[in-house]
Nucleic acid binder design. Sequence first.
RNA 1: GCGGACGUGGUGAAACGGUAGACACACAGGACUUAAAAUCCUGAGACGGCAACGUCGUGCGGGUUCAAGUCCCGCCGUCCGCACCA
Length: 880
Amino acid sequence: MAIERYNAPEREKHWQSVWESRDVFRTVTDPSRPKCYVLEMFPYPSGRIHMGHVRNYTMGDVLARTKRAQGFNVLHPMGWDAFGMPAENAAMERKTHPKAWTYENIAAMKSQLKSMGLSLDWSREVATCDPSYYVHQQRLFLDMFARGLAYRRKAKVNWDPVDQTVLANEQVIDGRGWRSGALVEQREREQWAFKISAYSDDLLEALGTLDKWPEKVRLMQENWIGRSDGLMMRWKLADGTAPAGHDELEIFTTRPDTLFGASFMAIAPDHPLAKAVAAQNAALAEFSDECRRAGTSAAEMEKAEKKGFDTGIRAVHPFDPSWQVPVYVANFVLMDYGTGAIFGCPAHDQRDIEFAKKYGLPIIPVVAPKDEPARGKTVARIHEGAAYLDDGVMINSHFLDGLSPKAAFDEVARRLAKERIGNEPVATRKVNYRLRDWGLSRQRYWGCPIPVVHCDACGIVPVAAKDLPVVLPDDATFDQPGNPLDRHPTWRHVSCPKCAAPASRETDTMDTFVDSSWYFARFTAPDAVTPTDQAALDYWMPVDQYIGGIEHAILHLLYSRFFYRAMGDTGHAGLRNLREPFAALFTQGMVVHETYRRADVEPPQWLLPTEVSFEGEGDARRGTEIATGKPAIIGSIEKMSKSRKNLVDPDDIIAHYGADCARWFMLSDSPPERDVIWTESGVSGAGRFIQRVWRIVDDVVGGRVAKGTPQPATVGPEALEVRRIAHRVLDQVGRNIEGLRFNVAVAQLYELSNALSGALGKSGDGLDWVVREGAELLIQMLGPMMPHLGEECWARLGYNTLLVEQPWPKADPALLVDDTVVIAVQVNGKRRDELTIGRTASKDEVEAAALQLATVVRALEGRPPKKVIVVPQRIVNVVV
RNA sequence: GCGGACGUGGUGAAACGGUAGACACACAGGACUUAAAAUCCUGAGACGGCAACGUCGUGCGGGUUCAAGUCCCGCCGUCCGCACCA
């Protein structure tokens, strides 16, 4: 009799309401239990969830549910990264309010997430745009301000002309704003910054402790922080060549060992010395202006030719008063790194050698390979214009000759530390970092207000704690560009908290990355009256597994590492004062899909997957636009995006196949760190598997042994084999889930269900009992991945408990080892045969058995083997 | 330019240095059916052979090892990050 198909969409709603009504996912802070904090990067409420969210949140949910079954007290919260530009753009375009738009989106997306059946504790939900969240952020900010970790500075900033706001260095990608895509301009502005540079060394060093982070992310952060060890070195300027008041020039170098290869100095156009000369030299002033103009766009800067202007100043070599080198103003020297001045050693720096060739400066090799003829070749190549960067031995360098560059570095540092200009040493060791302070001011409305007041008399005055939060005014207008807070008629006009004189509220708001830099801490005690609750933090932190996209490798993940340190130093990170918020990080791949577009149209007109029909397969596969009947081009597989229209709506999939099907497909096949190609056939395959599980369970409950039947006395060999598979899979699936190898876990569950399907058609000693046992294990293991199907099957198997509340089953160790093993037999490393033998057989027994095999005898041709390698329970290799 | 990752059937992929291709998708053949859908069974890395079986096979070229997809060296290709950082 045909059984009824499992109606996923209908049953999923049922089980979701059961979970909700029993409040099974509420988490209580309970230090007596082992904890596990599973977190996925919270979404920006753009309006609807997309497949990337489905993948991300499915992975976290599987882990959270598994850990919960394994007895951990699991924290698995969700919230909204709710401030940001799109809300203001929507307000401008649609005449709505950012707040209304955001909260509507949150409601819609929350309902979508609920339809996925995620095991989230919604009682801990936070939205960063809610005053109940950002009041605490304002407190954190003021504490950081009091400690000098947040400060105001005048600086060159990245100005996004489209979003009309300042961007942090991390938010400029290839010279363009990360959000708007507009070419970023450099502008001088007063703005707020976080002193992330105070933690450069700690942030770098501690990367070494993050052994559960991807190597790639650690490396990216390492490069971003960019430590370099070198020397600050002061050069005297030759008398009469430099303007008054400039009798020395300080440079930073990481290659003091190449000091005897120096042939020029170069300084930034904005260097004080350059400005002093330019004041009297129109040609240089013109040159500097040109450099600055070219410098307005980072993209142009990359391609710019290296140019210099000889100032006529001469600098005196620290070891040889008679040796003078020219000082150039150069377009490639940056004012904000080191001292804005360098010495050029052309032979050992590719950029310097290009510069030297262009301006006819000497090129003196000072490092070369130890041995001829490599040395001769290297010197020749240097003179052809190829800088030598490898290790070697010092040459042409007086007292350094023969030393290694490393020893030469130390020797130069040692000698120059003793030399004096005035009372100061000529050179001191110095560590420089590429990492800049984090500019956090944004000239936008929809962000966390910076809680300070500008008073003519008192300067910058923090808003008193009792007056927090500084709340955004609801009645702002969005009908023109610029900052709505600036033009609000009343909001900014306040009296000074200190002297009560009329004063002006800060109208910049915080970068939204501030909001996401501590939300994970707030989740541990979302109702605390202080920003964090020390006891809750001490119990829950760090996040045991954080899951999100690689695009945050630097931005969010570096900011959060900094912010948690700053919270610690202002007393907000728990009594244990952990420094690292995320113990383990996993960066999942993207969801990609084929693209479709109309034929012969430029620019491309993209079509939605639902607008195209297909026939044929492989190379012969053709697409047709359904509406017009015209051919559609099947294009490359790309990240799902609105612009390419290669989108699949999670709602459609959930409504048609169910959430479990979408979840199962996301977990199958592709390793989670790689991209997954969304295909219709893959989804329907997942759907077929759901029905198959349903049929297995149906078969088990129909006429087979009942729930709780004791194990029969005899279990035949066929049944035993099924048991072995079930317990072996059980043993491995848990480990594979913990290791986030979901695709492998899925494959093993397929293997088990194949074994059960195969056994269902047969009869044998104890087989019915074994199949029921296997089916129950299958359902328990499937539970974290397809939780609705799991509950439905669990109930059908006769249980009136909830599967989600069942402990994780344990494999029987006795079933994990077989009495006999199959050993591969190789001759000269090539597999020739196999051998079935007792598991405990000795090496000698295995060797003897192997040598009797016909294939081996044939290969030996009567001679004794040269050597026989036996790896017990694995392999025999006969060397002839 | 610098740094990193990856490269396995038609496809997505598995594989503590130890039987390469588990599992899935697609495909082919068969069963059931008036038929289709659904389901079940079977097959399949390539080449040769009716078959038993043989030869080759994890981007290319070397090396280490009894044994290499896995370790080492050198290439090629693809992708990603950084890019005047002194």
